[in-house]
Design a binder for these strands. Sequence first.
DNA 1: ACCTGAACACCGTTCAAGT
DNA 2: ACCTGAACACCGTTCAAGT
Lengths: 225, 225
Amino acid sequence: MAGNRRPAGRPRTRILNREVITSAARRIIAIDGVPALTMTRLAQRLSVTPSALYNHATSKQEILRWIEDSVMGEIDASAFETTDWHTALREWARSYRDVMSAHSELIGALATVEVAESPRTVAMYEKVAAGLAAGGWPIASVVPLILTLESFIYGAAFNDHAPENVYDTGELSDLAPTFARAVEAQRGRDLRAINHELFEIGFDAIVDQTAERAGVPMPATTASA
Amino acid sequence: MAGNRRPAGRPRTRILNREVITSAARRIIAIDGVPALTMTRLAQRLSVTPSALYNHATSKQEILRWIEDSVMGEIDASAFETTDWHTALREWARSYRDVMSAHSELIGALATVEVAESPRTVAMYEKVAAGLAAGGWPIASVVPLILTLESFIYGAAFNDHAPENVYDTGELSDLAPTFARAVEAQRGRDLRAINHELFEIGFDAIVDQTAERAGVPMPATTASA
DNA sequence: ACCTGAACACCGTTCAAGT
DNA sequence: ACCTGAACACCGTTCAAGT
């Protein structure tokens, strides 16, 4: 028995696991972006050979899924435990938007991945689903609502990421006089601020209409922080 | 003079250009997906050596931008020429959603690219901007409206692409009983149809609220095909 | 059980050499 | 002006060999 335990004083050398790999990978992405995440670079950060990683992950794709779950775990759905569903849903949506916005590089990779092996992601959805159900939403309307809001949230995160000059027409402005004028009218305005303002409008619009359609009454006291 | 012209009967061998490269690339993506688009594969399709492509495009990235412009050019904004802005905007949004949905693999790559060297994209935006301006929209509200709708459209296209089982919790369903039940309640229902229905709701909600805010009256006869 | 080191089949891109 | 062919510096992944 005792022979199986590592001798005292000898440093542990087996340090690779999902958690440690995920956080090293996220650090690389945070510093140098998604394209910088290579198996070689990741192995270097972990003081290990690239092939060693394959003892813990079956592929780079799997590591990307770990990262996704890790990011989704940052979304704050705790408001469902403390306030009415409408307020909680808004705070969740904002948090979701902010998290996705901060990791917009990943959106393309993340959006189509299944949720099956992603414990933190599933936990997040559970909080939302439970909160909505407790708030009077019929179970059959929960997924459609989440789907629609996610649509909007992903899109909003995209726009947050968009460079200031996405709409610059460059040499083509002669061909697009009205559009060029419309773009010019935004010059100097904070696109991000506009975007966030529009997010609130869109959120209210979607939730109000969906709730009405599902026959769900608004909570008595709707805070709108 | 005559000496510069290619001799009759000799086949032209210089056939590479933006158009021909773009369409070959799109065909590869259509058949085998985005990952299958490599410079080698593209060159093969064009009966040419990979390095030959670099006489026409400065990088693979540039070719991806050509593809983006080509895809955006398929969005139908012609309704602005024939009907009121509200109906036209809806038809444009549906077309945009359908085009993005059909090319959802590209969304991640496309969303952050500038519009500067993209003539068909700019032409599409011009139709929308001109139509809105003619319909009474203040020029300063045009870009914000487009931004918000694009948010929603991209998100909706994402959801169209989502596999049926995105929300399957797998072995984790014990940890997420309510969410698992909510997902189960959708089983057998056509997610795509639900998604399209919700798209209309979201669209109306966003446009109505944004128009009201901008002080734009609805057109007298709003068709809702 | 886990890591190394060599190898494999690819990538995108460059560049001298040809016509 | 445009294409070829060889080369370069990478990729992700596999696998026998070690401990």
